[in-house]
């Protein structure tokens, strides 16, 4: 487990890549949403397998979780979880440019999640000269423990989770969610190779 951890330089480099990816993604989003998007610098934490469920369960207040798998070349793959609190999802239809009666609340959550995940990861992938495909996003059942159950049933053993706290403010209201990227060991090693390549180029 220890050798999987990122060094300080690697962590900084990753933070920078994510900042740039998030910046470009939010720029694209702003155009798509036809509205000014103010983005706070995302905070990144790496969370290990044991403490993720606990960390997320602490924010248990009737949250919704949308999961979406991603896979690219050179074994870069994993699963993105978007975690919402109840109050985060009040005006999603508005934000997305739909009429509220055109789609259900579940669909709104899935739609915004897919957009956030894919725009962000697409930019991230192009920075590391990769290309990423996605599986269809899924809303996890809204039961207690459904998140821990889901983590147990994943198709791969993940060793590191990157918790990226995203905060968007869109003109007259704010939108919050947590993006958690679950990444298996092999993918971490591949990311580390990429990070070190970038670090060497500097």
């Amino acid at each position: 487990m220890n050798q999987l951890r990122l060094t300080e330089d690697e962590q900084d480099c990753l933070q920078e890549l994510i900042n740039v990816a998030m910046g470009q993604a939010s720029d694209q989003l702003a155009r798509y949403l036809d509205s000014f998007v103010y983005l706070k610098v995302p905070s990144i934490e790496s969370v290990d397998a044991d403490s993720l469920a606990t960390t997320l369960d602490q924010q248990q207040s009737a949250m919704a979780v949308v999961s979406q798998g991603f896979f690219g070349y050179e074994g870069i793959r994993g699963e993105a979880l978007l975690v919402y609190q109840d109050e985060d999802s009040e005006r999603l239809a508005d934000l997305l440019g739909y009429e509220p009666d055109e789609l259900s609340k579940d669909e709104q959550l899935i739609d915004i999640s897919s957009i956030l995940t894919t725009t962000f990861l697409n930019v991230f992938a192009s920075q590391i000269e990769n290309q990423i495909s996605y599986s269809a996003p899924k809303l996890l059942p809204s039961r207690a423990n459904s998140l821990s159950e889901h983590l147990d049933q994943l198709t791969f053993n993940w060793d590191l989770a990157l918790k990226v706290n995203i905060n968007y403010q869109v003109t007259d209201y704010s939108f919050n969610c947590n993006m958690v990227l679950l990444i298996p060991e092999t993918a971490i090693n591949n990311i580390k190779v990429v990070l070190n390549r970038i670090l060497e180029e500097l």
Binding site: I110, N122, K138
Partner: peptide, 21 residues
């Protein structure tokens, strides 16, 4: 149309599942 517009503008895939529709 709005959904397809997101694909064109963002260059990202979009999805629609039988579970919602």
């Amino acid at each position: 149309s709005r959904k397809l517009a997101s694909v064109l503008q963002l260059g990202t895939p979009n999805f629609c599942s039988w579970e919602q529709r």
